[in-house]
Design a binder for these strands. Structure first.
Length: 427
DNA sequence: CGATCTATGTCTGTTAGCGT
DNA sequence: ACGCTAACAGACATAGATCG
């Protein structure tokens, strides 16, 4: 007997009219919830209130008040973004849907969100007991979001929000989100942690980086089947787990915002983080146009043991170079070049690049062509030594060619400088 | 499953500095 | 004034990851 036949059998056992009434009556409403009745129909609203010192993982919810104003910088194009005027303008938003697609067939049966008042963090969940309640929920939600300027999500930019927007179109409800900014925390999370944790799913980020442990959590992946089961048999008890899961997701969203905000505010103790995280944070702070904090992060990284900081030296030097902090960059290039002298030449690029960078610095910044020449010669020596033990690749050949060219140019520049000196002497 | 963003690598265009 | 070159910035294509 197939699963489908089972379900059909169950559906046949009660008439449609009966089953709808039974369903709505039998979902003994979940804890903290009530029925909202509107002109457009009814739906379930579940609300939970948290005091601002409620701890979720490493943070108290109220800590957002200290860092919210920096949050617009999580986006690459923060310069063109509306800034966050108040933590009360943020709506933390997460849905549970009937699937993963963004097409018309995917229905958000639960819209969860959280927001701050002066004294509390409040989560609310809008839940429809059947498709007929969707219009009422959508109208209610649209009214509600008018009070907010920013939407905070995790992949909501490509998942939750387009799905919700689609529902307004399909229900022919006028809708505009033109004034609503989106702060999607997925991309910056991936940027910071994709190398240091196994996955950047929200559940893993909260566990690995926010100190949040869930007990008996219902994975979001089960939400569609639990909802379908509820639609079929009217038993609402398994939905409790979905409500809780969604509520915790919203809390985590706020906590993640606090964590990211703390980094942008320079409040996070970087000495306790692993080297890769510190490097990523430094880069992010640089892009977020917070150069002092970026430098602080890089300085912390440079205190780490040689082996652990080694692979970041060139990248950090590149940032200093871009910001025209040449003295700092030179120190790192020298350090990186030293690694190349002692260790075996494993990666041609990494042992030669610091020498090339230094040569560029002496040629273009200092005009000390002889210094630059010495560095190019050293690079050439290393490249040739390398060629003798290893068949050169196309890249190796290109690199060698460029080095020769650089050497030739520096020779003429050095020679010209020399002859000018002679000219000066002769007069 | 779909849509979207990002990292990465390659290329193409622009700019600054230099010499003729 | 003009052209050349190195270095950098921006464009483009591609592959991977995340959402329930």
């Amino acid at each position: 007997m197939s699963h489908l036949q089972d379900r059909l059998q169950r559906l046949r056992s009660t008439s449609p009219v009966q089953s709808t009434e039974k369903k709505n009556r039998d979902l003994s409403l979940p804890s903290n919830s009530r029925l909202v009745e509107t002109n457009e129909g009814s739906f379930v609203l579940r609300q939970c209130k948290y005091s601002l010192d409620h701890l979720h993982g490493h943070y108290a919810l109220g800590q957002l008040c200290e860092v919210y104003d920096l949050l617009s910088r999580i986006s690459k194009r923060f310069q063109t973004l509306k800034s966050v005027e108040s933590y009360r303008d943020l709506l933390f938003f997460d849905t549970e849907t009937t699937g993963l697609g963004v097409g018309a067939g995917n229905v958000p049966f639960m819209i969860g969100y959280g927001y701050y008042t002066d004294t509390e963090f409040i989560t609310e969940q809008l839940f429809i007991r059947n498709p007929g309640e969707e219009r009422a929920m959508l109208h209610y939600f649209y009214e509600f979001i008018q009070g907010f300027t920013h939407l905070v999500t995790y992949n909501g930019r490509t998942f939750d929000w387009p799905i919700v927007k689609n529902r307004y179109v399909l229900n022919r409800i006028l809708f505009s989100d033109a004034d609503l900014e989106q702060l999607d925390l997925l991309y910056i999370s991936r940027n910071l942690w994709k190398n240091s944790i196994i996955s950047c799913r929200l559940s893993n980020v909260e566990e690995q980086r926010l100190g949040i442990r869930r007990h008996n959590d219902v994975s979001g992946a089960y939400a569609p089947s639990i909802y379908f089961q509820y639609l079929a048999d009217g038993d609402g008890s398994p939905l409790e787990g979905v409500f809780l899961h969604n509520e915790l997701d919203v809390l985590t969203l706020a906590t993640l915002a606090i964590h990211l905000g703390s980094i942008l505010a320079g409040q996070l103790d970087l000495t306790k983080l692993n080297t890769d995280d510190v490097f990523r944070i430094g880069n992010w702070l640089d892009q977020a146009n917070l150069p002092e904090l970026a430098e602080a992060a890089f300085r912390e990284l440079l205190k780490r043991p040689a082996q652990s900081k080694r692979k970041y030296l060139l990248s950090i030097a590149t940032v200093f170079k871009k910001n025209r902090q040449f003295e700092q960059a030179v120190l790192l290039w020298r350090e990186a070049a030293e690694f190349g002298r002692t260790g075996q030449a494993l990666h041609a690029l990494h042992t030669l690049q610091p020498l090339i960078e230094l040569a560029m610095y002496y040629e273009h910044q200092c005009k000390q062509y002889n210094q630059a020449l010495d560095l190019v010669d050293e690079a050439l020596n290393r490249a040739e030594r390398r060629q003798s033990i290893r068949r050169p690749s196309d890249k190796d050949r290109l690199l060698l060619e460029q080095l020769m060219k650089r050497r030739a140019r520096l020779m003429t520049k050095a020679y010209r400088g020399l002859s000018e000196d002679v000219d000066l002497l002769s007069f």
